[in-house]
Design a protein around this nucleic acid. Structure first.
Lengths: 182, 182
DNA sequence: CTGATTTATGACACTCAGTGCCAGAATGTG
DNA sequence: CACATTCTGGCACTGAGTGTCATAAATCAG
């Protein structure tokens, strides 16, 4: 059902497609559609909340041993991004991500904020104390991770890069930017 | 007029306040309000587009000399963030930014995407060629810059930090995360 | 100052997302 | 079969956002 909507969005764009059209295409009433997907954006984010759950689960099983921030980033982002190595899941996820990157309304979705909150918890709990507070570090890391993933969905995947490759490249370049060398 | 709306939003939250209430508070008809501010979010983003314009202007006057990515980041972000040193402008801007950070709808606003597009142009035109494409680098940098600015508006300003300090701290920490040391 | 033109405002009616409410269909359980 | 639960659809509503049109207000020419 959300796949039918996805096809419509890809063909006509996110905003132009109305919930009535989706309901009709899915053979269900408008009211039922809204019951299954409380908002239009939920049709696109469908299934991506599992990423948040995976990160949360990681947070609960992570050993107490101290690690560098670098190690933590790798460990945390590997969870969602490795799912994208599964061609089955990756294909639909990429289409979803591409759509998300194209629409302000989709970019503001709650799932993204939940993900950020989870990672903030992780950083605060498992990373070494750092000068800027965990909240700021986490926001920056999520921002880099998400934007590199969007880039991967849009351009990177077609040139044989993995999503994790894209993240590492983005982090490295940002690192160079702030350290001195261009 | 957007200040009246700002006060209402701060008191009751962004979503609960209706355009009718704002129109009434501003002593203007609902239709006129929509003519002045095409969307509810525009009431909050009011004035912040000047940041995009400032970056665009910088792009047109920037010398052709090659610079490191680090130098470029400093040069570009100094433009909007130095405006925040003016206590007059900063106070309202901070209130706007705090509101923006609290609402998904506000986080998806077009102005943020315009800013990203401008910076992408700058990076592509003036930074040394880098392994990940300019688009990805720019997205990551804008993400770090924006999230650190949001953090500054929420928590940082009260502890005597400048917005530019917050950005530098965020960049440095992200750098350490990707380079090896925690 | 007056008349004409342009521009800003307000009223009305509309579309679309999203929600509450309720009646009836489907499904499951003894 | 009778009963309770859950699923579905229909209806009516609020709120954001838009098009249209008439009129008020500001602007300008003479």
């Amino acid at each position: 059902m959300s796949l039918a909507a996805l096809r419509l969005f890809e063909r006509k764009g996110f905003e132009p497609v109305t919930m009535d059209q989706i309901a009709e295409a899915a053979g269900v009433s408008r009211r039922t559609l809204f019951r299954l997907f409380p908002s239009k954006a939920d049709l696109v984010w469908e299934g991506l909340e599992q990423v948040v759950l995976a990160v949360r689960a990681l947070g609960e099983t992570l050993s107490e041993r101290k690690r560098t921030l670098g190690q933590l980033v790798e460990e945390v982002f590997a969870v969602p991004l490795r799912q994208l190595d599964d061609p089955e899941f990756a294909d639909v996820a990429r289409r979803r991500l591409r759509l998300i990157g194209s629409s302000p309304e989709l970019l503001g979705h709650q799932t993204l904020r939940d993900l950020q909150a989870e990672i903030t918890q992780l950083v605060a709990a498992h990373a070494p104390a750092s000068a800027p507070p965990a909240q700021l570090v986490a926001e920056a890391l999520v921002a880099v991770g998400f934007s590199s993933t969007l880039w991967w969905a849009r351009d990177g995947a077609t040139q044989g890069l993995s999503a994790l490759d894209a993240l590492r490249a983005a982090l490295r370049t940002v690192a160079l930017a702030s350290v001195k060398e261009g």
